[in-house]
Design a protein around this nucleic acid. Structure first.
Length: 279
DNA sequence: GGCCAGGCCTCGC
DNA sequence: GCGAGGCATGGC
């Protein structure tokens, strides 16, 4: 166990923020995460104290970076003083952070996401993991943690683990017409046409174009992958929710430029606020 | 049981 | 370049 104080960190909001599909809110003070081939549980202790169900070493090696704890989110409010909507969204969503998630997992997850509800995306991602991922045995945890929701979890499968998956198997996980897109993505990576290292080295514009070149990847999915996997935090994905906001409060379009590399964070606040704000 | 989902592809202009 | 139609399936 590792206990640490973290300002501007709300695991529950992150679980509901729609950027990750393998988070489970266990109760009001516990969430569990399957990522990086590992199981992690977080217990909320109050006063910005959190217990992580891992060693201090693993926290430093993996989760500190994963949860973007190297960025000071408390400064964001100062950037939006002339924007009433964003101010409300930031106050409501404070604690959300942009995760640094696995590149391959995000590409496939967001290809799946198109024209699907978040619960349906979660179902398909979990089915794919169960089918081809590696077993992760749930740890036995004591207070302040709670019992994991399952005994066995499955890592999100690598493209090597997916190399022989058939269109029929893909159909079986409920991805419908996206099966072909997923199969193409697997081939792109198996063949070496695309590699995560190669993509990581590109600048934003080049990366965007390469992602757009993939079958089943359009502007929205490319921006989500850039934001949630490559941590290109100037990316501003526009989906039906965001477009609804822009139509309602911004005359149909949004100038993200003033926000620089915090535009993607603002986008998350807007998305979360629009979905969960009380009427 | 019908409607819609964190869109994209193809076609026609 | 741009708008319209079609799209497999799961949740609610």
């Amino acid at each position: 166990m590792h206990i640490i104080n973290i300002p501007c960190f709300d695991p529950i909001k992150i679980a509901d923020s729609g950027q990750a599909f393998r988070y489970v809110k266990l109760d009001d003070t516990h969430v569990e995460v399957v990522a990086k081939g590992k199981y992690l549980q977080i217990a909320i202790l109050g006063n910005d104290d959190f217990a992580f169900s891992c060693t201090a070493q693993e926290f430093d090696d993996i989760w500190y970076n994963y949860f973007n704890l190297d960025r000071d989110y408390s400064k964001l409010a100062d950037m939006i003083k002339d924007d009433d909507y964003l101010q409300s969204a930031e106050q409501f969503g404070r604690g959300i952070r942009i995760l640094r998630q696995d590149i391959w997992e995000m590409i496939i997850s967001y290809i799946i996401s198109q024209r699907k509800s978040i619960p349906a995306i979660t179902t398909s991602v979990n089915r794919l993991s169960t089918l081809k991922g590696k077993e992760i045995i749930a740890p036995s945890l004591e207070a302040p943690f709670v019992q994991p929701s399952q005994n066995i979890y499955y890592s999100f499968p690598t493209y090597e683990e997916l190399s022989d998956i058939t269109l029929e198997e893909l159909a079986g996980i409920g991805v419908g017409y996206r099966a072909e897109y997923i199969r193409c993505a697997i081939d792109d990576f198996i063949s070496g046409k695309l590699t995560t290292d190669m993509l990581s080295e590109k600048n934003d514009e080049e990366l965007y174009e390469l992602l757009l070149g993939m079958r089943g990847v359009g502007a929205k999915v490319a921006n989500c992958v850039m934001l949630f996997a490559f941590h290109r935090t100037s990316s501003f994905p526009i989906d039906v929710w965001i477009q609804r906001i822009l139509d309602k409060y911004y005359g149909g379009s949004f100038n993200k430029n003033p926000y620089g590399d915090t535009a993607g964070i603002m986008q998350q606040f807007m998305f979360y606020y629009e979905r969960y704000k009380p009427n």
